[in-house]
């Protein structure tokens, strides 16, 4: 990730192409890829919690559309896919004699967000602040641990919840094309269902907050 960011900075400072003002174009689409780093309760492996999330860093892919309202403001929409693997090694040490087999599927969120941009343009560079709100279709991590005494089976429950994000970004324009980097947070608090030791179903809220950083390529039209 560090190498990617440094490369992007080099690209920013290395290009000498005179770019046209992005304001010449009213719309844009962009594809962004980066990392999503769980924070707070989402990264917890606390024994005292009923169901700690054990989420680890994973990829975040975003496809966005935006339309200029005026030179300062723009609005748009984002479709995003975030996957955060479950920290299986922390949950069940592979050297543990009780572990016969273990597997997991990552936490997953698909976001559909409405975005509002506040933009500041200086020459061919654009700095922006982006606020987002929408829905996240979340899936709990699936965990299966087989032991000689039975199997721990945490199923992949699904839950839709309100999601929001706040990001800042910097974009370098090259006529219709531009590249940039963005960082911020994406968060939501879905309610998942889990059976307790007696088999009763329990609902619990799982904060799913990540700090994100990524690079994007955009096309204006």
């Amino acid at each position: 990730m560090k190498q990617l960011v440094l490369t992007a900075l080099l690209v920013f400072t290395g290009f000498t192409i005179a770019a046209q003002d992005v304001a010449n174009y009213s719309s844009g689409i962009r594809l962004q890829f980066g990392g999503a780093f769980p924070v707070g309760n989402f990264s917890s492996d606390d024994f005292e919690e009923d169901y700690p999330a054990f989420a680890m860093s994973g990829p975040l892919l975003q496809l966005s559309y935006n339309r200029t309202i005026n030179p300062r403001w723009a609005a748009g929409a984002t479709f995003a896919l975030r996957r955060n693997p479950f920290n299986l090694d922390k949950f069940a040490d592979p050297t543990d004699k009780l572990v016969l087999n273990r597997e997991s599927e990552p936490w997953q969120s698909v976001f559909t967000l409405a975005d509002v941009y506040y933009r500041m343009q200086t020459g061919d560079k654009l700095f922006y602040l982006k606020g987002s709100v929408g829905a996240a279709f979340n899936r709990r991590a699936k965990v299966t641990i087989a032991t000689p005494y039975g199997t721990i089976d945490h199923k992949a429950d699904r839950s839709t919840a309100l999601a929001y994000g706040l990001h800042v970004g910097l974009k370098q324009n090259f006529d219709r094309w531009s590249i940039g980097l963005e960082t911020g947070i994406l968060s939501g608090k879905p309610i998942f269902e889990m059976p307790d030791a007696q088999g009763n179903k329990i609902n619990y809220k799982q904060p799913m907050t990540t700090v994100n950083a990524g690079l994007f390529a955009a096309y204006a039209f």
């Binding site: 641990i145 005494y149 039975g150 721990i152 945490h154």
Partner: peptide, 12 residues
């Protein structure tokens, strides 16, 4: 250490 296999006891 924390024994999560014990916490989510699978049997016995």
């Amino acid at each position: 250490s924390d024994d999560f296999i014990s916490k989510y006891c699978p049997g016995s």
